[in-house]
Design a binder for these strands. Structure first.
Lengths: 149, 149
DNA sequence: TGCAAATATATGTACATACATTTAATATCC
DNA sequence: GGATATTAAATGTATGTACATATATTTGCA
């Protein structure tokens, strides 16, 4: 659906403003699609992102600092998200032996198993970007890169 | 900067996954740019969005329902955002005379004056979408519309 | 008329975000 | 070696988000 109809607003001032609003709106739409998906597995999107980073490190540990660096949203509070994952026993946390200020965080076996199930489910799930032809997807990435220049 | 470098991740599985991650990342980046901007004026982004809707209605009142319909993020809690705006005396709220279940919300003179200052400041501010040529901005909108089909 | 359903908003709870501050451990410099 | 600065993580507070529930008002129909 065109963005004008989607948000029931009169015309935009120009193509830039329209693209801007469309970008915020669409990313939000995508995030809602996904959070509904993750909820089936008892996870939130940030929790999933952290689990995925931990799998990338596995079997090496990650510190909170490393999580913050790698997270898509750099300003969020990794420490408290790890709290929730630890409560679900999807990760382990223990003081780093070589630097007792830092904390070694590792994905647990239960966490790895959960991600396996998620991978399978995600392959079945068709998120919106699948509506684009491969060339269109590449072009979208290129336009987005330009915005952040 | 290319998205691969931005999030320090190895190659993506395909153009679709890359576009997807890029979309979430970029919209987040934009929102952070903006929320820093609005903070100078003592507002958050959702508060600004609601003020803008109220200005669009002015001098007619809006109800909470109307705000929810018009807001970009439809699931957020308009009632409590109006609480904050009311505390700053940027809006007024009173029971609708013709339907005492509903509440008439209006932007105050102080709210209108704040938006005038914001408009001026936003014209000076160059958000990322300005990096795109007009045709590119139009194409971005068209790609985003396709994703939500 | 009176009672149930629908509507408009507000409130409660859990979680996430943004940002400042605190606590503890380590590094640095004199 | 000891005071000070730096670093890593956790915590506090205010705000926003998501979703369920509560409260009040109006509507509609038996």
């Amino acid at each position: 659906m065109k963005i004008e109809d989607e948000i029931k607003q009169a015309a935009f001032r120009n193509d830039h403003q329209k693209a801007h609003v469309n970008l915020i709106f669409t990313a939000n739409w995508l995030q809602q699609q996904q959070s509904g998906f993750f909820k089936q597995f008892g996870l939130t999107l940030p929790q999933f992102n952290i689990l995925r980073i931990l799998r990338g490190q596995h079997p090496k540990p990650a510190t909170v600092n490393l999580l913050i660096e790698r997270m898509l949203d750099k300003t969020s509070n990794a420490s408290r998200i790890v709290d929730k994952l630890e409560a679900k026993e999807l990760v382990t946390r223990c003081v780093c032996p070589s630097n007792r200020r830092a904390v070694d965080i590792r994905i647990s076996d239960a966490g790895l198993e959960l991600l396996v199930r998620l991978d399978a489910a995600m392959d079945d799930q068709r998120f919106g970007v699948q509506n684009l032809a491969p060339a269109e997807a590449a072009q979208l990435s290129s336009l987005l890169d330009k915005i952040r220049d």
